[in-house]
Computed example of a mutant assay.
Amino acid sequence: MGITKSNEIYSAVSLSGGKDSSCLLILMIEKGLPINCVLYADTGMEFPEMEAHIAKLDDFLFRERGLHITTLRHPHGFEWLMFDVPQQQKRAIERRIAMGQPPTGYGWPGMRVRWCTGQLKTHLITKETNRLKKEKNALHHIGIAADEAHRCKDDPHNRYPLVEWGITEAQALQICYDRGYDWGGLYEIYRRASCWCCPLQRIDELRKLRHHHPELWARLLDMDNRARAMFGPGPLGQFKQNWSVERLEARFAREDAETTA
Rank of each mutant, 00 (worst) to 15 (best):
A146H: 07
A229K: 07
T168P: 05
A229C: 11
Y181R: 07
C195I: 10
D224W: 03
W196E: 12
H213S: 02
G166W: 07
G184C: 04
L200F: 11
G185Q: 12
Y181K: 01
D204Q: 14
K208L: 13
A193K: 11
Y190R: 14
Q171D: 02
F239W: 07
A149V: 05
Y187Q: 09
H157I: 00
A229E: 13
A172P: 04
Q174Y: 01
F231K: 10
R207K: 15
K153V: 12
E148R: 13
R192Y: 15
R191V: 06
R179N: 10
N225E: 15
R159H: 03
D222V: 02
G184N: 03
P156A: 15
W165C: 02
P214K: 05
A193H: 10
N225W: 05
Q174W: 00
E148T: 12
R151G: 09
E169W: 10
L200N: 15
S194D: 09
A146T: 11
Y160T: 15
I144G: 01
Y187W: 14
G180E: 12
L216V: 11
I175V: 00
G237L: 11
F231T: 00
Q171Y: 01
S194G: 08
L236T: 06
A218P: 06
R179I: 05
D154G: 07
A172Y: 09
R151S: 08
N225M: 03
R192I: 10
H213E: 13
W217H: 04
C152Q: 15
H213L: 00
R151Q: 13
P199C: 09
E188S: 15
Y190D: 13
H157D: 10
C198N: 09
K208S: 15
G143R: 13
E188T: 08
G232P: 05
